[in-house]
Protein backbone atom coordinates (compact mmCIF):
# COMPACT_ATOMS: atom_id res chain seq x y z
CA UNK A 1 0.00 0.00 0.00
CA UNK A 2 1.29 3.42 -0.87
CA UNK A 3 1.31 6.03 1.82
CA UNK A 4 -0.79 8.97 0.71
CA UNK A 5 1.31 12.05 1.06
CA UNK A 6 -1.36 14.37 -0.22
CA UNK A 7 -4.10 15.75 1.96
CA UNK A 8 -6.30 18.41 0.36
CA UNK A 9 -4.40 21.70 0.53
CA UNK A 10 -7.35 23.31 2.31
CA UNK A 11 -9.70 21.32 4.49
CA UNK A 12 -13.30 22.30 3.86
CA UNK A 13 -14.98 21.80 7.23
CA UNK A 14 -18.47 22.46 5.87
CA UNK A 15 -18.02 19.70 3.32
CA UNK A 16 -16.54 17.41 5.95
CA UNK A 17 -19.54 18.03 8.22
CA UNK A 18 -22.04 17.63 5.39
CA UNK A 19 -20.51 14.33 4.31
CA UNK A 20 -20.47 13.13 7.87
CA UNK A 21 -24.15 13.95 8.32
CA UNK A 22 -25.54 12.99 4.95
CA UNK A 23 -23.37 10.16 3.77
CA UNK A 24 -22.30 8.37 6.91
CA UNK A 25 -24.63 6.42 9.11
CA UNK A 26 -22.50 7.22 12.10
CA UNK A 27 -19.94 9.86 12.90
CA UNK A 28 -16.43 8.65 12.39
CA UNK A 29 -15.62 9.61 16.01
CA UNK A 30 -18.50 7.45 17.26
CA UNK A 31 -17.24 4.54 15.17
CA UNK A 32 -13.70 4.92 16.45
CA UNK A 33 -15.00 4.94 20.03
CA UNK A 34 -17.09 1.88 19.28
CA UNK A 35 -14.09 0.14 17.77
CA UNK A 36 -12.11 0.39 20.95
CA UNK A 37 -10.75 3.93 21.41
CA UNK A 38 -13.08 4.70 24.29
CA UNK A 39 -11.28 7.83 25.44
CA UNK A 40 -11.00 9.49 22.05
CA UNK A 41 -12.82 12.67 23.11
CA UNK A 42 -10.44 13.32 25.97
CA UNK A 43 -7.73 14.31 23.49
CA UNK A 44 -6.66 17.94 23.76
CA UNK A 45 -4.10 17.75 20.96
CA UNK A 46 -1.08 18.34 23.14
CA UNK A 47 1.11 16.41 20.73
CA UNK A 48 3.04 14.36 23.29
CA UNK A 49 2.13 11.15 21.42
CA UNK A 50 3.53 12.53 18.17
CA UNK A 51 6.77 13.53 19.83
CA UNK A 52 7.69 9.88 20.41
CA UNK A 53 5.76 8.17 17.61
CA UNK A 54 8.00 6.13 15.28
CA UNK A 55 5.63 6.87 12.41
CA UNK A 56 5.79 10.62 12.94
CA UNK A 57 9.56 10.34 13.17
CA UNK A 58 9.92 8.71 9.78
CA UNK A 59 7.47 10.97 7.99
CA UNK A 60 4.06 9.34 7.75
CA UNK A 61 1.23 11.77 7.05
CA UNK A 62 -1.41 10.69 9.54
CA UNK A 63 0.50 9.86 12.68
CA UNK A 64 -1.37 9.57 16.01
CA UNK A 65 -2.03 13.23 16.87
CA UNK A 66 -3.11 14.21 13.37
CA UNK A 67 -5.20 11.08 12.94
CA UNK A 68 -7.07 11.88 16.16
CA UNK A 69 -7.68 15.49 15.10
CA UNK A 70 -8.92 14.42 11.68
CA UNK A 71 -11.31 11.96 13.34
CA UNK A 72 -12.53 14.63 15.76
CA UNK A 73 -13.46 16.99 12.96
CA UNK A 74 -15.18 14.18 11.05
CA UNK A 75 -12.78 13.43 8.20
CA UNK A 76 -13.13 9.93 6.88
CA UNK A 77 -12.53 9.40 3.18
CA UNK A 78 -9.03 10.84 3.34
CA UNK A 79 -8.25 8.57 6.25
CA UNK A 80 -9.70 5.46 4.67
CA UNK A 81 -7.43 6.05 1.69
CA UNK A 82 -4.32 6.23 3.78
CA UNK A 83 -2.22 3.35 5.02
CA UNK A 84 -0.56 5.03 7.99
CA UNK A 85 -2.49 3.05 10.65
CA UNK A 86 -1.23 -0.17 9.09
CA UNK A 87 2.32 0.96 9.66
CA UNK A 88 1.76 1.46 13.40
CA UNK A 89 4.14 -0.84 15.27
CA UNK A 90 1.77 -0.86 18.25
CA UNK A 91 4.73 0.10 20.41
CA UNK A 92 2.34 1.77 22.87
CA UNK A 93 4.82 4.33 24.04
CA UNK A 94 2.07 6.88 23.26
CA UNK A 95 -0.31 5.03 25.55
CA UNK A 96 2.26 5.13 28.30
CA UNK A 97 2.68 8.90 28.18
CA UNK A 98 -0.70 10.27 27.05
CA UNK A 99 -1.79 12.84 29.70
CA UNK A 100 -5.43 12.23 28.88
CA UNK A 101 -5.34 8.43 28.73
CA UNK A 102 -6.58 8.54 25.18
CA UNK A 103 -4.34 5.65 24.12
CA UNK A 104 -3.47 6.91 20.65
CA UNK A 105 -2.42 3.34 19.81
CA UNK A 106 -6.01 2.29 20.38
CA UNK A 107 -7.16 5.04 17.98
CA UNK A 108 -4.72 3.81 15.34
CA UNK A 109 -6.05 0.29 15.72
CA UNK A 110 -9.68 1.39 15.86
CA UNK A 111 -8.95 3.11 12.56
CA UNK A 112 -7.62 -0.18 11.20
CA UNK A 113 -10.83 -1.86 12.38
CA UNK A 114 -12.92 0.83 10.72
CA UNK A 115 -10.98 0.38 7.49
CA UNK A 116 -11.57 -3.37 7.73
CA UNK A 117 -15.26 -2.77 8.36
CA UNK A 118 -15.46 -0.55 5.30
CA UNK A 119 -13.30 -3.00 3.34
CA UNK A 120 -10.89 -0.17 2.66
CA UNK A 121 -7.90 -2.45 2.97
CA UNK A 122 -5.38 -4.01 0.68
CA UNK A 123 -4.93 -7.77 0.33
CA UNK A 124 -1.69 -7.44 2.26
CA UNK A 125 -3.62 -6.33 5.33
CA UNK A 126 -5.61 -9.56 5.47
CA UNK A 127 -2.77 -11.89 4.51
CA UNK A 128 -2.01 -12.45 8.19
CA UNK A 129 -5.64 -13.32 8.89
CA UNK A 130 -5.68 -15.81 6.04
CA UNK A 131 -2.53 -17.44 7.38
CA UNK A 132 -3.94 -17.41 10.90
CA UNK A 133 -7.03 -19.23 9.72
CA UNK A 134 -5.16 -21.73 7.56
CA UNK A 135 -2.26 -22.56 9.84
CA UNK A 136 -2.96 -20.97 13.19
CA UNK A 137 0.05 -18.71 12.64
CA UNK A 138 0.22 -15.24 11.17
CA UNK A 139 3.80 -15.91 10.17
CA UNK A 140 4.09 -19.39 8.73
CA UNK A 141 6.77 -21.15 6.76
CA UNK A 142 6.62 -24.45 5.05
CA UNK A 143 10.39 -24.95 4.91
CA UNK A 144 11.64 -26.69 8.08
CA UNK A 145 15.37 -26.77 7.49
CA UNK A 146 16.02 -24.28 10.23
CA UNK A 147 14.16 -26.37 12.80
CA UNK A 148 16.04 -29.47 11.72
CA UNK A 149 19.32 -27.61 11.81
CA UNK A 150 18.91 -26.68 15.46
CA UNK A 151 17.75 -30.15 16.40
CA UNK A 152 14.05 -29.54 16.82
CA UNK A 153 11.21 -31.65 15.47
CA UNK A 154 9.92 -30.39 12.10
CA UNK A 155 6.63 -29.32 13.55
CA UNK A 156 6.32 -27.17 16.66
CA UNK A 157 3.73 -28.30 19.26
CA UNK A 158 1.27 -25.73 18.01
CA UNK A 159 -1.79 -25.83 15.77
CA UNK A 160 0.76 -26.80 13.14
CA UNK A 161 0.93 -30.27 14.63
CA UNK A 162 -2.51 -30.45 16.20
CA UNK A 163 -5.43 -30.68 13.80
CA UNK A 164 -8.01 -30.57 16.61
CA UNK A 165 -6.53 -27.39 17.96
CA UNK A 166 -6.50 -25.83 14.51
CA UNK A 167 -10.18 -26.66 14.13
CA UNK A 168 -10.88 -25.05 17.51
CA UNK A 169 -9.12 -21.90 16.42
CA UNK A 170 -11.06 -21.90 13.16
CA UNK A 171 -14.31 -22.26 15.09
CA UNK A 172 -13.36 -19.23 17.08
CA UNK A 173 -12.44 -17.20 14.01
CA UNK A 174 -15.71 -18.21 12.34
CA UNK A 175 -17.51 -16.56 15.22
CA UNK A 176 -15.74 -13.23 14.87
CA UNK A 177 -16.06 -10.25 12.61
CA UNK A 178 -13.53 -11.84 10.29
CA UNK A 179 -16.23 -14.25 9.20
CA UNK A 180 -19.05 -11.74 9.43
CA UNK A 181 -17.31 -9.50 6.94
CA UNK A 182 -16.28 -12.40 4.72
CA UNK A 183 -12.76 -11.10 4.57
CA UNK A 184 -11.14 -14.43 3.91
CA UNK A 185 -12.42 -17.70 2.54
CA UNK A 186 -13.53 -20.03 5.34
CA UNK A 187 -14.67 -23.46 4.39
Amino acid sequence: MEVMEGVPPVINLTEVARTEKEEFEKKVSELIIEFGAENLLACMQCGACASICPLARVGFEWYNKKLIKAILIGMKEELLDDSTPWACVACNRCTEICPRQVSPFEVMFAMRRLMVEELAISTLAIEGDRSLYEHGHAVYMTGREARKKVGLPEKPPTTDSDEKALQELRTILKNTKLAELGLIPME
Binding site: F109, R113, L132, V139, P157, K164, L166, L169
Partner: peptide, 15 residues
Protein backbone atom coordinates in the same frame (compact mmCIF):
# COMPACT_ATOMS: atom_id res chain seq x y z
CA UNK B 1 0.16 -28.39 22.77
CA UNK B 2 -2.25 -26.82 20.32
CA UNK B 3 -1.22 -23.22 20.96
CA UNK B 4 -1.56 -20.78 18.08
CA UNK B 5 -0.53 -17.29 17.08
CA UNK B 6 -1.05 -14.91 20.00
CA UNK B 7 -2.76 -13.23 17.72
CA UNK B 8 -0.24 -10.83 16.24
CA UNK B 9 -1.05 -7.11 15.80
CA UNK B 10 -1.71 -7.30 12.09
CA UNK B 11 -4.36 -9.98 12.42
CA UNK B 12 -7.32 -10.01 14.81
CA UNK B 13 -6.31 -6.93 16.83
CA UNK B 14 -6.71 -5.00 13.58
CA UNK B 15 -10.11 -6.50 12.85
Amino acid sequence: VGQSCCPSWGTMPSV
